[in-house]
């Protein structure tokens, strides 16, 4: 690759560090590595960072932190050999793939040429990393979806996707935090809430964190949904297995 990473200006108060222009888990790892390095040693005048699959947007106060200083600092971090983003915590989320929560499992199976059970086994068997949040609060975009589950979006978006829906499209996977319209395919649901506005932290899982799904049957899931509705935090930290 030539020319990457490169710096693009989004006005005088935001800088985009671009690692590429496509979706590629290796680019996402570079983005998260820089993000974590900047979070580990905060820079005065650097206000917020927003990771995506291919770039890191840095919002800054140019009256405190001049652009040249910011770029110099990032250049230094990158030249130290980008640290690999292994510090993400590993979480386990209870998930149910029962047909009542998997509206599109038939369509996904037909389109990918896999049996429905195989679709579920692939999705439930993978380890993902939260690359970014986007679209709406707590919508977690993941890397790590098995390539066999790649398929295009629905021709017509759904009016409403329920909270906790596990959705896939375009080779990407999302955990949907709240009800919103979407053209992605629903193949399961988690009872864990990625966005809890009344609690601290409101977002238990951070970009860079890794997660796995723990399949449960419909009966157990109903009980978990009730506990989630009562405000219980259902994601479980997997101890002693940080990183890759």
């Amino acid at each position: 690759m030539t020319g990457f990473p490169r710096f693009r200006d989004a006005g005088e108060a935001a800088l985009v560090v671009e690692f590429g222009t496509v979706i590629d888990d290796r680019l996402a790892e570079q983005v998260l590595a820089l993000d974590l390095a900047l979070l580990a040693a905060p820079l005065q005048g650097l206000l917020e960072s927003v990771p995506t699959y291919r770039s890191l947007m840095l919002h800054y106060d140019p009256l405190v932190l001049p652009r040249a200083s910011l770029i110099g600092h990032i250049g230094q971090l990158l030249s130290q050999g980008a640290p690999v983003a292994t510090t993400g915590r590993l979480w386990c989320l209870p998930a149910c793939y029962d047909p009542q929560f998997a509206d599109d499992i038939g369509h996904v199976a037909r389109t990918t040429g896999l049996a429905a059970d195989r679709v579920i086994a692939l999705h439930a068997g993978a380890t993902y990393r939260i690359v970014m949040y986007g679209f709406a609060p707590g919508w977690a975009y993941l890397s790590g979806l098995p390539p066999a589950l790649t398929l295009p979006r629905r021709a017509t978006p759904r009016e409403m996707i329920p909270a906790g829906a596990l959705i896939i499209a375009g080779g990407q996977a999302i955990v949907a935090a709240g009800p919103m319209p979407s053209g992605w395919h629903i193949i399961g649901r988690t009872a864990a809430r990625l966005f809890m506005p009344g609690q601290d932290p409101a977002f238990p899982l951070s970009p860079g964190d890794r997660l796995q799904f723990d399949p449960v049957d419909a009966g157990a899931f109903a009980a978990l949904q009730q506990r989630a509705a009562a405000g219980e935090v259902l994601m479980r930290r997997v101890p002693g297995r940080q990183g890759a």
Binding site: T21, I23, T52, R54, M57
Partner: peptide, 11 residues
């Protein structure tokens, strides 16, 4: 269509 990236106010 581009692969999503950040949006600043005023974009």
């Amino acid at each position: 269509d581009i692969v999503s990236d950040g949006i600043a106010m005023g974009a």
